[in-house]
Design a protein around this nucleic acid. Structure first.
Lengths: 327, 327
DNA sequence: TGGCTTTATGGTAGCGTTTCCATCGCCGCT
DNA sequence: AGCGGCGATGGAAACGCTACCATAAAGCCA
């Protein structure tokens, strides 16, 4: 900046003004400064600016993993909105661990982000304390926490799963199994599990343990899960899967084993991934507004940063049952 | 920090030392300072530290979109390695636009990242100039550029696609079509297209325009592409797809239309997504070491930042033909 | 024409850290 | 006992920028 100022024959403060203040600088001077900037290829140092302005223009986002299309899409929606507003995303992966989340958050907060994007509603006490103390706007995405830290852009996994299950029941299925990935600290999976037990119970249906199966992650896991589940519970007439990835795995295993869907076994999923509509038979599932959640999260943050009081800090984006051929 | 210092009855510089210098502070003093830090919930301001240390601990990563499992996995590998070294990722999406990439890079460079992760080898002249001028370590990931900006962790789309195509030829297919997504500025797709034309030509096979089809993005696009391609070129005995997403779409469309694969039509893809091994029939494709590329990219950066001269700055991670049932 | 406002620019003081150098005891050696 | 040296701590400057106030020049009106 000193170099630019010298070259343009002005003070550094004038360079700064050319960069930020629209009409505070005479056209001739402005032209000279801009020429100097171009000639030197000068890029302002945002670290210094952040220090004095106490605004970094960064948003910290903590997600379980990036290579999960659900979170990737949410972040994509978030990023598009944020980028348009000049906010950049600092992304960290927690690997589904509250300890990692806490550690990463501590590190991220040191960078003075202007807002924090958190996945789900399950966070360690220290995480909550730090966030409250930091007075940074926070959005929890993908759940509807009972005690939100601050703002929320989510949906109810409990109700969404319940809706799918009620659909199965309406269709006449009575022996409904459940295939799910390891639950861990994932509150969405906790809710879906609860929905499975409670919705079937409410309909007077059984949910013996043998009808549930904890699968490995990934599509192949779904296939293996189905094979095992058919051994331990051949009486099942339907399977609900905690995510479409598993459901597609199940569907493909059925295809390989020649099990007719939905005749012999109905299958339903959760998420409505793009493949759900394409696979044969097309998968009955529930659509989660993943991209929209990211966009809404960004919107909440931007409004708050703009100084607006956000009247409705908890936004329920809902879900949409997708009835297709598989159930 | 002033508060912590006052509470512990020391100078700020001592607080700083407690934070960073292992043995430069008396145990008793250190304990007092640490107590004060804990009591006040003090988090150091990394912005200020970055300013004076001229080290931000951030790496800027520019990828086309986050919601693309390929890039997501590369970034995942990158992030894991970086996070372990205390480097945080600043992520931006270029939406497959060189202009956007240039604009985002300019913004990111202002944040003084310690390294830059770039996707592919196709960048605007201004982008290249800025990077050279900034003297920041750069890794280009996923291609093998003819004129690397700096370091590279990639593979040859040309050779990988060529290998798949030669496999088709060996299997006896002679009328091989090509379904690909819009090429735009994506150098990987340019290379695959060139591989299609040159590999078949080298084998003395035809590649009339009617055998090529530019599909929409996404799995559904693959399905529609197949339908159209079968109309305009019913004579095809095999189809090569520029990505597994399209190939799976093609496969599912075949399933729906009752086209037997590979009997009536062989199908091959590119990427080896998890679904490739699961779908029926399993997809012949080529495995790209996506996660590994991210890890290697991180490794290159870390070595460079550690002051090591990187002897082999261009790493070719290769690829692996996966022969399965579909071709 | 003189005082007033307005416009254009500059000087200086931080922002919260770390780096560099100085200071102060205290230990051990002769 | 005196001196060199070392370990522990502090003071002040600096990192690159912007906020705030000051100043100078230029316009304006009666």
């Amino acid at each position: 900046m000193v170099d630019v100022a010298r070259r343009a024959g002005v003070a550094t403060v004038t360079v700064s003004r050319v960069l930020h203040e629209a009409d505070k600088v005479a056209p001739a001077t402005r032209a000279r400064v801009e020429a100097a900037i171009a000639e030197l290829g000068y890029l302002p140092n945002l670290v210094a600016r952040s220090l004095v302005a106490a605004r970094t223009g960064m948003v910290a986002a903590l997600i379980p993993t990036i290579d999960n299309s659900l979170h990737a899409e949410m972040i994509q929606g978030m990023d598009e909105r944020c980028a348009a507003a000049g906010l950049h995303l600092l992304i960290g992966c927690t690997a589904f661990s509250l300890e990692v989340e806490e550690r990463m958050l501590r590190a991220f907060l040191s960078r003075q982000p202007e807002a924090v994007y958190l996945t789900g509603s399950n966070h360690s006490p220290a995480t909550r304390t730090m966030l409250k103390a930091s007075r940074v706007p926070v959005v929890e995405v993908a759940s509807l926490p009972e005690l939100p830290i601050d703002m929320v852009a989510g949906y109810s996994s409990f109700h969404a799963a319940g809706t799918v299950l009620r659909h199965l029941i309406e269709r006449g299925y009575r022996r409904i199994g459940y295939v799910h990935s390891p639950i861990g600290v994932n509150d969405r999976l906790v809710e879906r599990h609860r929905a499975y037990l409670e919705t079937l119970a409410a309909a007077g249906l059984e949910t013996p343990e043998a009808w549930r199966f904890e699968s490995e992650l990934g599509m192949a896991g779904g296939g293996r899960a189905l094979a095992r589940l058919r051994q331990q519970a051949p009486e099942l007439d339907a399977v609900f899967c905690s995510t479409d990835v598993l459901a597609v795995g199940v569907l493909l295993e059925c295809l390989r084993q020649g099990i007719s869907v939905p005749g012999e076994l109905a299958v339903a999923g959760f998420d409505d991934l793009p493949i759900a509509a394409e696979i044969v038979p097309a998968l009955t599932t529930v659509r989660i507004p993943r991209r929209r959640m990211g966009e809404v999260a960004a919107g909440l943050i931007l409004r708050r940063l703009g100084g607006e009081a956000v009247a409705e800090p908890v936004v329920d984006l809902g879900f949409e049952l997708q009835v297709r051929a598989s159930a």
